[in-house]
């Protein structure tokens, strides 16, 4: 049974891959470009040199963290669509702390990351408490909280967080010694990526090897049975939401400290929403999130090079990702229908 399941899973994955490639070829033809040229440029865009290859990780970094957050939440049955807002809240809190701490250096960075984690976590907690206490749909509340967070950032960079030296809607620059340093010369590979990878290990360990992770999974799969065994459903929903929001908050802080070096609008590049898709594709598995996030970033870079050279719109990435997600969901639908038929 398990073996045939694996074979079927592989066959389905191959089908999805094939359909996606076919769709890509179709879209490239629609642009009047040659698929083989485009393919060449795609590969080149990723593997041209060390810098481009490291760029994959730079792009993947916020996705890894927000995706990891989504994975923790989804596994517990908490559909946190709010990584975007939690990212922004984390970025804001981090910037605020970074600019106001009386000292600089590693301790400053550490406290800033902690602040981002706490702020993102607390932001997600709002939705979790509403769900645990009043059974409010977290899907709705997290999306609404996103609007608030995104617009509050716009407000912040025009008021209390605005750079007093200028009149652009952005914060003051983060002091050099408080930035996350680059690690490989002539690339943008930075210390934040290492933090993201450490988070994958830590969260993966928590989810798969600890009693806390076991409880989260039990609550996600059958909250009623979990409660009957003495596992607190409310506690675990709150815990997973906090962790989930916190990871997105760290992603926001890293984006500020390592890439932009200041706070400004739109810094998430919507990674909080992309993370939901990444996590769905990864099947809520922490290592899966890592792999899918890196793959997603690579595809983005590859198509970026296609756009520059052949004028193929970058939007192709979003179209293909949408397609993949629909195919994966459809696969679940098909197996669901299949099992229902068997039962009847």
């Amino acid at each position: 049974m398990a073996k045939t399941g694996k074979v079927r899973g592989a066959a389905e994955a191959a089908c999805i891959l094939l359909l996606t490639v076919l769709a890509a070829v179709g879209l490239i033809l629609l642009c009047g470009a040659s698929p083989s040229d485009a393919g060449g440029l795609f590969v080149q865009g990723i593997f041209r040199n060390t810098s481009s290859m490291m760029e994959v990780f730079v792009k993947a970094c916020p996705l890894i963290l927000t995706g990891l957050g989504c994975a923790v939440a989804f596994r517990t049955g908490f559909f946190n669509i709010g990584a975007e807002g939690q990212f922004y809240i984390g970025a804001m809190a981090g910037t605020l702390v970074s600019l106001n701490l009386p000292f600089n250096g590693p301790l400053n960075i550490l406290l800033v990351i902690l602040a981002g984690f706490l702020a993102g976590g607390l932001w997600a907690l709002i939705a979790a408490v509403l769900k645990a206490k009043f059974e409010t749909s977290e899907i709705i509340t997290t999306i609404m909280l996103n609007y608030i967070a995104i617009n509050f950032l716009g407000f912040a960079v025009r008021s209390f967080l605005q750079d007093p030296e200028g009149n652009v809607p952005q914060s003051a620059k983060i002091a050099l010694e408080n930035q996350l340093p680059g690690l490989i010369t002539s690339t943008r590979f930075h210390a934040g990526i290492v933090i993201a990878l450490l988070c994958v290990i830590a969260v993966g360990f928590l989810m798969l090897r600890t009693t806390a992770g076991f409880e989260l999974k039990a609550v996600g799969q059958n909250p009623r049975a979990a409660a009957c065994s003495g596992i607190s459903v409310a506690k675990n929903i709150i815990l997973c939401a906090f962790l989930s929001g916190g990871l997105a908050g760290i992603a926001g802080v890293i984006e500020v400290l390592a890439i932009q070096k200041k706070l400004l609008e739109g810094i998430s590049a919507s990674c909080g929403y992309t993370a939901v898709l990444v996590t769905l594709i990864a099947g809520n598995h922490p290592l899966g999130v890592l792999a899918v996030a890196v793959a997603y970033a690579a595809v983005q870079l590859g198509t970026g090079s296609m756009q520059r050279q052949l004028g193929i719109p970058n939007a192709i990435v979003s179209i293909l990702i949408g397609l993949v997600v629909i195919l994966i969901l459809a696969r679940k639908l098909i197996s669901l229908i299949g099992s229902k038929r068997r039962r009847a």
Binding site: F214, N222, A226, S229
Partner: peptide, 17 residues
């Protein structure tokens, strides 16, 4: 609904308590 988490394996269900 109450006593099993049917998506988990036997080992995990035996250890629920």
């Amino acid at each position: 609904n109450d006593s099993l988490i049917t998506g988990m394996d036997i080992t995990e269900n035996l250890a629920l308590r």
